[in-house]
């Protein structure tokens, strides 16, 4: 694939992710996964899970983190030099931000008219519960044979789920699961 075509494909994909990424964060995951794993195959589903893990332990929203990471990886995976990968990162990050920049600018200008607009409320009435469904599907889509290799995976899943419900810090949980993985899966 020509480099310029790759940049264009990345740009369009992340533009789409920015435009339809309602609900932020986890709600955007199924859309990102569909674009970069299923449709374009830029990264594998385990790579995608690793990006989510990295996102959960580093600052910033998942949408930016995955844009930066995937932009770099997709380009370097095609055999291009690191410098081109950095450009790929910038292209994706810019693309994912453009819809917000345009829509928020319009909305900010007309803020006081939109705020109590019944049509706006109407559009959100089904969208809000739908976003919960999208987050649930994000979890379901990642419950696959790549991420859950055996019964130990399910034990880790159960333990982290309970601990997270008890408000244990997610970064600590990721670190502990990493340590558990190291000891549970001997070389």
């Amino acid at each position: 694939m020509e480099l310029i075509d790759l940049y264009l494909a990345l740009f369009l994909s992340f533009l789409k992710i920015g435009l339809f990424g309602f609900g932020g964060g986890y709600a955007m995951l199924p859309l990102i996964q569909r674009e970069v794993v299923d449709l374009h195959g830029w990264i594998s589903v385990s790579d995608f899970t690793d990006i989510v893990a990295i996102s959960q332990t580093t600052p910033g929203p998942i949408a930016f983190n995955s844009a930066t990471y995937i932009g770099y990886t997709a380009v370097t995976n095609m055999g291009y030099a690191q410098g081109y990968g950095i450009v790929g990162s910038a292209v994706c990050t810019l693309a994912v931000s453009i819809p917000s920049l345009i829509l928020m600018t319009i909305v900010t200008v007309s803020f006081f008219r939109l705020k109590n607009n019944p049509w706006m409320q109407a559009s959100l009435s089904v969208l809000k519960p739908a976003i919960i469904g999208l987050i649930a599907s994000a979890a379901l889509l990642l419950m696959n044979d790549y991420n859950f290799v055996d019964y130990k995976s399910w034990i880790i899943f159960g333990a982290v789920l309970v601990a997270s419900l008890k408000k244990v810090d997610p970064i600590l949980l990721i670190v502990l699961s990493g340590v558990a993985g190291f000891f549970l899966y001997p070389a």
Partner: peptide, 15 residues
Amino acid sequence: RVFKGIRPAVVALIA
């Protein structure tokens, strides 16, 4: 090995 442990945790943190 480390990421084998982390991946199911990621799913739990989303759920």
